[in-house]
Amino acid sequence: MEAFIFNLFIFVLASFVGFELITKVPPTLHTPLMSGANAISGITLIGALIIAGGPDSVYAQWIGFAAIIFATINVVGGFMVTDRMLEMFKKKEGEK
């Protein structure tokens, strides 16, 4: 119970930080921001590592294995497409 309350505190406080982080975003940045935040939500990869690398059951390891594939696609692909989008903006500005 103690740990749960502590985690709940962290969750609520982090949510407030998240709410405050984004104020005014120009429309051109909507998709890249969404994409970048999406890549961060691939953090669940860390949970997948713990499941797949755990000692307890082979069945769980296979589930973890699938989770790692999914989460890695999210993380690697997510950060890469975000970078590609933002790179394009830079070029556009340079052309002016």
Partner: peptide, 14 residues
């Protein structure tokens, strides 16, 4: 917990 909450909240604002 933290990263998920950050994205959850920031995503909602966005």
């Amino acid at each position: 917990i933290i990263s998920g909450a950050l994205v959850g909240a920031a995503g909602l604002i966005l």
